[in-house]
């Protein structure tokens, strides 16, 4: 991990079609267990990519690495053309220090399976925390923008409630507003409906549908809602054993999967529903 040869990786991605996110032979190991095996994945600006696959296939790890919640063991991740996991030093790439990570992280927002709202802050305070104390936006401005976002996710009337007073669906919508308040270029949705009761899943997926329709955000989503993934994605990646087994437009991948493992997975999911 220390002496890896990074000479093959460019210091920055240049050209007309630089992807917003680019994984270049990214490897992640926990001890002996290889979670991601030399992953290559590009996500274009404004593209919505959904990651599906059985549990343990490494799909959540992809998002967590992009949010810098996990370190990587090999390869380089680029965001908006600049290296995320590494930084240029004297003409070569070295491991990113905390300053570089802080700088690069401002491009990325994330929503979690268990919402992770700060329980001691109201919905509005959750949304204002980052803009005021990280971005340094004046309070009044941050408040106006947060209220706007809470309104967009349909939570304006609950803005002064603490998370413990909100349902799961409501908490997740606040979490989406909180992430958007940081004005990220890339949004990550990590199984955001998995912890929700079936009847409130719709209120969260509808918010994400609106985001896709009305904003030019780049998005990466891990989900078990196949119907939702099919409706909304520009591209679907099926992960298996730490690799992308198959990927393509949703109609193709769901309608006519080529690989046997994809077929097995999709039919197993269909049966379960």
């Amino acid at each position: 991990m220390t002496d890896e040869d990074l000479s093959g990786f460019p210091l920055a991605l240049e050209g007309p079609d630089v992807p917003m996110v680019s994984f270049r032979t990214v490897t992640k190991r926990y001890g002996e267990l290889v979670v991601l095996d030399a992953l290559n994945l590009d996500v274009a600006e404004g593209e919505m990519v959904t990651v599906i696959g059985p549990s343990g296939s490494g799909k959540t790890t992809v998002l967590r690495m992009l949010m810098t919640l996990e370190t990587i063991n090999g390869g380089v991740i680029y965001v908006d053309g600049k290296p995320l996991t590494h930084m240029p030093r004297n003409g070569r790439l070295v491991r990113a220090d905390s300053r570089h990570l802080r700088q690069m992280r401002s491009n990325i927002g994330m929503c979690f399976q268990h919402f992770n709202l700060f329980p001691h802050m109201t919905a509005l305070e959750n949304c204002m925390e980052g803009p005021v104390h990280v971005l340094g936006i004046p309070k009044a401005e941050a408040r106006a923008r947060s209220e706007e976002l809470l309104d967009m996710v349909g939570m304006a009337d609950k803005r002064d409630q603490h998370p413990s007073r909100l349902s799961g669906g409501q908490q997740q919508r606040v979490a989406i507003a909180r992430a958007l308040a940081m004005r990220p270029k890339v949004m990550l949705f990590d199984e955001v409906t998995s912890a929700l009761d079936p009847e409130v899943i719709g209120e969260v997926t509808n918010v994400i549908r609106r985001l896709v329709a009305e904003h030019n955000l780049t998005m990466l989503m891990v989900t078990h809602q196949m119907g939702f993934a099919k409706d909304i994605s520009d591209r679907v990646c099926f992960f298996y054993g730490g690799r992308i087994e198959e990927q393509g437009a949703p109609d193709e991948l769901f309608g006519n999967p080529q690989k046997e493992r994809t077929q097995q997975f999709l039919s197993a999911v269909k049966e379960a529903n």
Partner: peptide, 23 residues
């Protein structure tokens, strides 16, 4: 304090000091 709170603070890019004292 659940691990998710640390992760949420990281995803919002809060500094270590701010994360400790505010979250």
């Amino acid at each position: 304090v659940p691990k998710g709170q640390w992760e949420a603070a990281t995803s919002l890019n809060l500094s270590t000091t701010r994360t400790y004292f505010r979250v």
